[in-house]
Design a protein around this nucleic acid. Structure first.
Lengths: 143, 143
DNA sequence: CTTTGTGCAAACGATTTGCAGGATG
DNA sequence: CATCCTGCAAATCGTTTGCACAAAG
């Protein structure tokens, strides 16, 4: 196809020193196109929906490669599963306690923490907020 | 021994409708006595330091029972491990990126989030901040 | 052509489960 | 004494690893 978006992804991967393979490309492109921070099994199923694209082990290794160059980050909000996010700019997360769905929350929902209140000796480097609640879909089905 | 602290723990367990067993008591008492939010293997090793007190499966089931009545909560800050916390009053967490150590952070390090900035449809019920950084011990050993 | 990635299957570690015997209320 | 808990071992689930073959630069 050679369209702009495709090229941009290829360039990004190359600029980070990653070899561009169909599998790695597919993982990154898929993650960029969604904001629900999928776990590996979800991601893999989506990739292979129309014919085989990648294997489980390769998805794990692709994610590790992408993560090591800062194109992808892990999101830990659920027991037993690691989710992945291609949005590496700072943001918070909302998690629905019914369906487990996760979505992004604007960075300015809180001001910067007052790190002066940390115990002396601790050096803060970053922070992230997790909001728990109920999403609209679950709210309806509950009533 | 029948001292005050012991009785208080027994009363707490009973008041929540939990049967008081030596194993369950040991798990809860141990968690109450520490603030490092141990994982199950750590907790189990500590319990059985001086002779056998409980088994792995029982620790898991005790934690589940304690959690279901709100005496204990899970803490998810690390890949692959679930940690447990007997401090159920609201507080945030600090995690050292070097040693993985976790400690509590005062609730008032941030003001309440501006939930008006959430996407319409989301109902917030709670929130929690995670601060990442380096602890004093790691800072020294790094230099 | 040299290096790195892929994919299969086996290995692994944390957690869960089935079940027989034992303790609790 | 009926109910629930314990502990062992086997099962499960997400993730990692070893290795032979294939692809990328």
């Amino acid at each position: 196809m050679g369209n702009r978006a495709t090229d941009a992804i290829v360039q990004t991967l190359k600029s980070k020193g990653l070899r561009v393979t169909p599998q790695r490309y597919a993982v990154y492109a898929n993650l960029l196109g969604r904001t629900d921070h999928p776990a590996v099994d979800t991601l893999l199923a989506d990739l292979n929906r129309d014919g085989p694209v990648s294997s489980q082990a390769t998805v794990y290794s692709s994610l590790q490669a992408l993560q090591s160059v800062g194109l992808v980050r892990e999101v830990l909000l659920e027991e037993g599963v690691t989710r992945y996010d291609a949005n590496v700019s700072p943001h918070h997360h909302f998690r629905c306690r019914c369906c487990g769905q996760i979505e992004d929350v604007a960075w300015d929902i809180i001001p910067a923490p007052d790190f002066g209140k940390l115990r002396p000796g601790l050096t803060a480097e970053g922070y992230e907020l997790t909001v728990q609640g109920v999403c609209d879909r679950c709210q309806e089905s509950q009533v």
